[in-house]
Simulated scan of single mutants.
Amino acid sequence: MTVHQWHRDTVGQRAVQALIKNQFDAVYFATKGEAEEHILQFINSGAKVGFGGSMTLAEDLGLVEKVKAKGAITLVHSDPQLSAEEKLEVMRQQQICDVFLASTNAVTLDGCLVNIDGVGNRVAAITFGPKKVVIVVGVNKICQDVEAAHHRLQSTAAPKNNKRLQYENPCTVTGSCANCQSPTRICRIYSVIKRKPMLTDITVVIIGEELGY
């Protein structure tokens, strides 16, 4: 085992234990290949499965096609073929789907999930609505505490997502948050989940690799 892998394993498992203490179901896998089987066990043929606009799930794990292969109905609002009205309807359907798959912008070593949304559909579905929520996150998103998590969101997650979405906000020039007043600002809803929501079945899957933004 390399020193890098030792550190990823150690930090990932610490985060899992903190999440469990905060009443989440949580599990750690060293690689995305190992995690995939665990994630897909929650998917049944015919189930409606929502995706929270996650690069971790769509690009790093390729889960959209794998979920389709299990016979599930996928609800992907980022599909470029959707009209604005169709996209909004998919977001609404995600709130009442059977399984909602998403990532989180940060997870803290004291067991909190920290997110920023533009519309709020992702943090809404994570908090309440779907029958099952599965959060998949790489160790690169683990932060010491909520303050460090917010710094990560401002310096890393938000600028990269703005660039990916091709919004001409200040952070796509400077590479860090400027607390802008832009009409296309995507940092609008700030969410810190300190304990598992009372009526939401959440599993957090931490993977010992760098995934997503």
Rank of each mutant, 00 (worst) to 15 (best):
Q5L: 12
D9T: 14
Q13F: 07
R14K: 14
A15I: 08
A15Y: 01
V16I: 15
K21F: 11
V27T: 12
Y28C: 03
Y28G: 02
F29N: 00
G33W: 01
G33V: 00
G33M: 05
E34S: 11
E37H: 05
L40D: 00
L40K: 00
Q41M: 10
Q41D: 13
F42G: 00
F42K: 03
I43M: 02
I43D: 01
S54F: 01
M55R: 11
T56W: 07
G62L: 07
L63I: 01
L63F: 01
K68Y: 02
T74G: 08
H77Y: 15
Q81N: 13
Q81E: 15
L82K: 10
A84L: 15
E89H: 13
V90R: 09
M91L: 13
R92V: 05
C97D: 09
L101M: 12
D110T: 14
D110N: 15
G111Y: 04
G111H: 06
G118L: 06
G120M: 13
N121Q: 03
I126D: 05
T127A: 14
F128L: 15
G129H: 06
P130D: 03
V137N: 00
N140C: 05
I142N: 03
I142K: 02
V146D: 03
H151Q: 14
A158M: 10
N162P: 02
R164N: 07
Q166M: 11
Q166C: 10
E168N: 13
P170V: 08
T172Q: 10
V173E: 13
T174C: 05
C177F: 02
N179C: 08
S182F: 03
I186Y: 04
C187V: 10
I202S: 03
I202L: 10
L211T: 07
G212F: 10
